[in-house]
Amino acid sequence: MRQLHNAMRAALAAAAVMFAATSGAPAQPARGAAAEAAPKEDAVAVAGKERIEVDVSSRSVAVTSSFNGTEIIVFGTVENSQQASAESGFYDVVVIVEGTLSPIVARKKSNVGGLWVNTSSIRFASLPTYYAIASTRPVDELAEPDVRDAHAIGFSHVPMNIASKALASGISAEEAQNFRDAIVRLKRKEGLYVSSDYGVAFIGRSLFRATIELPANVPVGPVKARVYLIRNGAVLSEATTSVSLSRQGFELLMYNFAHRQPLLYGLFCVSLAVGAGLLASTLFRKAGAH
């Protein structure tokens, strides 16, 4: 059973590699991104130096009326792979998918005269609205904290920039850390920060893939994927790719209407309400007459 499974995986891998190789046009930007991320390696392109190239299963995701979350597959290959088989565990791969950065305010309640009231708050100038991390094994096993720090790998390294105003008002480091922890906790509860410790799998010597869930409440905007190839705790290569998540059809129409023509939109809502009220009263008066 297990062998059969592996055989199927290998076949899948071969197909995916062919796909990546033959469909030149869609793979181009990913190659460009990989080269951009590691220009030095390009210059000293010696045989045997590993490099990764990555792409995603769909470059654009449409948020329509029926949008109820979706999943994307981040896949890539290791050039000059030196591992013997998919199961050897020679390399580790970390895939991080981040949503748009947006400012956010975190607040903390405390008891004031018997009532639970928001008393302190920190404004974060930018915070990823969505953050998914998948790896070949738990991230704290595959690299030391300083390496993870340097590459913003893991929940404790999610980039959170406290607004300068908040810093000036003298918030202690400990308090700020409590707020950071709370943000991760709340975001995980909302399903917007997700981790999958064994979510990246090698399918053959060089091909790997990770399935990333985009939940129904994922904020609309561009989504970036960063992929790291790690060997013995050191990052060998990194590459990026992206997915655009955009409203389409009715959702786009209504969102733009509400935000670009708010007065007209408000009047439209009111006339719809008046229409609905009148329609209902005439319909039911007729029905009631019988």
Binding site: S102, P103, I104, V105, A106, R107, K108, K109, S110, W116, N118, F179, A182, I183, R185, L186, K187
Partner: peptide, 10 residues
């Protein structure tokens, strides 16, 4: 409350 912290976008 079980959770003292809350988040809001601006």
């Amino acid at each position: 409350p079980n959770e003292l912290y809350s988040l809001s976008s601006l």
